[in-house]
Design a protein around this nucleic acid. Structure first.
Lengths: 111, 111
DNA sequence: ACAGGTATTGGCTTAATGGCCAAATGAAAG
DNA sequence: CTTTCATTTGGCCATTAAGCCAATACCTGT
C-alpha cells in the first residue's frame, strides 16, 4: 500500500457536516443564545421574549424562525399567542453540554 | 411587587452571549467541522489537511485562523510546517457532547 | 544570498445575514 | 364583519463571510 488513504471531505460526507453546521449556525448569534437560555426555564410567549430584548418584534420573529428551522425549538399557537419551547431536554446532557462547551471555550480564549 | 422583573438581554450580559456565539460561529461551517473532526485524532500539518479538502490552501488557512481565534485549535510551527491541534480534549466530555448535540439535533430535524 | 517548498495575508467579487420598516396574516372580541 | 391585538413575511440596506488569486513572509538546504 502506497499511501494511507487520507480521509477526504467529499460528496459522501459533506452532507453530514453541512447538517451539523446548520445547527451550530443557528446558535451562532447572541440574541438566539439568549432566547435558548430563557427557554430552558420553560416555554415562553413571543410577547414575553419581545419584552426581554430591545429589538423590533419582526427581528425576534426571524430569530425564532431560524431556531425552529434548525430543529432547536418548536412553536405552537394558543389563542392569539404563539409559544416557543426547546425541542431538546434542557436538563438532559445535550444542551447542558453545548453550553458547557461554549463556556469552557470562551474562558480558554482569555489567555 | 408589580412585575416579576423579566430577565433582559442588556449590556451586562450581552458580552457573555457574544463570546459564546463566537464559538458556535466558528464551528458553523462544514469544512471547519471536518477539520475539527480530523484533529480529534491528533495533530495535523496544514499540508495534510490541505490534501483532505478540495479547496485553495489560502481558504483552508483562513478556516484554521477562524478556529484559532475562537480558541478551538492551537498551532505551532516546527520546521517549515505548521501543526494544528485541538485545544480541548477530544476524548473528554466537552467536544463529544457538542458533536453529540449536533448529531441529535440533526436527526430531530428529519421529521 | 538564492531557490525551494510551506503557510499566511491582502484584495476582490459574490453570497448570506441581521436589522428595521411596512404590509399581510390570523385569531378573537366587539 | 370590522376592529384590534399578536405574529409573520417581504422589501430594502448595511455588514459580514466565503472563496479564489496574487503577493508576501518564513524556513531550509545549496
Amino acid at each position: 500500500m502506497k499511501d494511507a488513504a487520507l480521509p477526504r471531505l467529499d460528496a459522501s460526507n459533506r452532507a453530514r457536516y453541512e447538517i451539523r453546521a446548520r445547527v451550530f449556525k443557528a446558535l451562532a448569534h447572541p440574541t438566539r443564545l439568549f432566547i435558548v437560555d430563557q427557554l430552558s426555564g420553560g416555554e415562553l410567549c413571543v410577547c414575553s421574549i419581545n419584552e426581554m430584548i430591545d429589538a423590533d418584534m419582526s427581528t425576534i420573529s426571524k430569530h425564532l424562525s431560524v431556531l425552529r428551522n434548525a430543529g432547536i425549538v418548536a412553536s405552537d399557537k394558543r389563542g392569539a399567542n404563539v409559544f416557543y419551547r426547546l425541542r431538546i431536554s434542557p436538563d438532559g446532557s445535550l444542551f447542558a453540554c453545548m453550553e458547557e462547551a461554549a463556556r469552557t471555550l470562551a474562558e480558554s480564549i482569555r489567555l
